[in-house]
Amino acid sequence: MTPSKSACITPLQAVRDAVNQVDFNRFRFWFQAIGFVLFVYGGYLAIDLGSRLPFFSCGYNQEGRGGVCYLLPLQHQLGRSWPTLFSAASLAILTGFLVFAAWFIVLNKGWCGFICPLGTLQDWITALRRRLGIRYARYSQGQFAQLTRIKYILLALTILIPLGIGGGWFSRDMSPPFCLICPARMILPIFTGDFSQFTIDFSSKTAMFMTALGMAVTGLFLIGSFVKKRFFCFFCPMSALHYLISRPALLKLKKDGDKCTRCGDCYRVCDMEIKEIADDIKTTDIMTDDCTLCLKCVASCPEPGALKATFVGIPIFESTEAGFIKRMTREHAP
C-alpha cells in the first residue's frame, strides 16, 4: 500500500488492515482449538452436526463427537448388498453426498487447515517437537511426486472395498475399511477417555489383520507427525475427495503471479511442502491437492496482494507488506 492511500482510510479498509495484520498463527491456533473442542467434546453439549462432515470428526468417538466424518456412513452405504445398492434406496447415497458437498463447499480444504481434529492434533504434535528443539523432516522432490499419489489410491480403496464387500467378494470384517486403518478411530476417542479402539480383534483372520494394521498405522501416525509436519494429511483420502470436488468451493486461495517475486517465503512455511505456491506464477487458483488451506502462505507473503484468500470472490485475508513486517517483528522479539 502506498503511504498516500493511508491518509484517508475508510472503515472497511480499517477492518481489512486489521485482519491482514493479524497475529495469524495465534488466531489459527485458537480457531483450531475451538474446532477441536466442538467436534471432540461437542456431543456432551448435545451438539450434533450430522454425519456428512467433510473432516475427521470421528464417529467412533461415540459420546464426545459433535458430528460424524462422511467417510464412515459412505463406506457403510457402499457396502450394502448389491441388490439393495442398485435399488431406489440408494438415492440416500446421492443425497448424503450432496449434503457432504454442501458442507465442503463452504470452507473448501479450509476444513483441513482450520477444523479437522486430526489435523489440529498433528499441529500440536509439531508444536511439541518444536519446543523440544528438534528439526523437522522434509521429502525430496522425487519422494513428494510419488507419495502424493497415495491418497488417491486410498480413496479408490475406500470406495472399491465396500463395493466388493457388498458383492460378497470380501469379508464384512473388513468394513469399514478405511476407518479400520484410520488413526483418528483410535486416537480421537482417547480424548473422551475411551481406549476401547486400542484392541486387536481376534474373531477372524480378516478382523485381526485389519485391526493390527490400524494399530500399526496409528503408531506410524504418532511417529510420522512428530518428525514431519502434517504427516498424515499427505495420504488422506478425504483430502483427495475434497480436491476432486473443489472447483465450486466458496473459499479460495488466489495468487497474482505478476506481484510474486518467487522469493519462496510461502513455500518455506508450507506444512505440505507445496512448491507450486512459490514457483507457479500462471495459475490464479493456486490450491493444489495437498493443500490444507491453512493460509500460512498468505500470512508469510511480503508482497501486497500476491496471495489472498477469497470468499465468494471477496478478499477476506490478503498478503500485505505491513502485515508481514508486523508478524515478523512479533516473531523476532526475544
Binding site: 518444536r130 528443539g133 528439526r135 523437522y136 517475486t261 518467487r262 522469493c263 519462496g264 517465503d265 510461502c266 513455500y267 518455506r268 512455511v269 512459490a278 500460512k296 508469510s300 511480503p302 508481514f324 513486517i325 515478523m328 516473531e331
Partner: peptide, 24 residues
Amino acid sequence: DMTAVDEWLLHDMVDGLADKYLKP
C-alpha cells in the same frame, strides 16, 4: 526481499536465509 521463517530453530532459519538470498 525479506526472509520468512516457520520454526525459529537454527536449521530452519539458516535455510530460510539461504532461500531468501537465492530464490528472488
